[in-house]
């Protein structure tokens, strides 16, 4: 629990740094989503993971300023927490990077479906361009953070 709170605070700080200072062309990585995925990987109780994901999402929507939608982060975080918690631990150990990147991408696509719904129907190419830009930036930043804080070791030893 202590570790969870520590990394939650760290994730909030990183999210604020990226959203306030390191936004590229209007796009920013979703660090809170990465936090939910990584923190729920070692959670054996899937229901608990989903509820944590939902609550973290709600906190993000209410406390961190996330635009006009309320509930979008809760939706994405619950789904990603469910996927993160469902996987077998051995599988996670062998393909850790591939696993969190895939889950992160699933989350980003759901995010974009709501954010760019009008583009999805009117200009699919532009929608795809936005999804790819956000995905690339998020994965790049997340990869650096995972390596920098040796998160694989922390998660697998939790």
């Amino acid at each position: 629990m202590r570790l969870f709170i520590q990394y939650f605070c760290l994730a909030v700080v990183f999210q604020l740094i990226f959203s306030e200072l390191l936004t590229i062309n209007g796009f920013q990585p979703n660090i809170m989503l990465l936090f939910v995925i990584l923190s729920q990987m070692s959670q054996s109780n899937t229901s608990k993971a989903v509820i944590i994901g939902f609550l973290v999402g709600l906190v993000c929507d209410l406390v961190l300023f996330t635009g006009t939608y309320l509930g979008l982060s809760s939706l994405v975080f619950s789904i990603c927490a469910f996927i993160a918690s469902r996987i077998r631990f051995n599988f996670v150990f062998q393909t850790f990077d591939l696993y969190w990147i895939t889950t992160l991408l699933v989350g980003i696509v759901i995010y974009c479906l709501f954010r760019y719904d009008f583009l999805f129907f009117s200009n699919f190419f532009l929608f795809l361009k936005s999804v790819i830009s956000i995905s690339l930036y998020s994965v790049f930043v997340s990869f650096i953070l995972v390596k920098l804080f040796s998160l694989k070791r922390v998660i697998l030893s939790a």
Partner: peptide, 12 residues
Amino acid sequence: VISKGTNSNLNA
């Protein structure tokens, strides 16, 4: 501007 939002695009 206090916050530009913590979502993946600027909308508020």
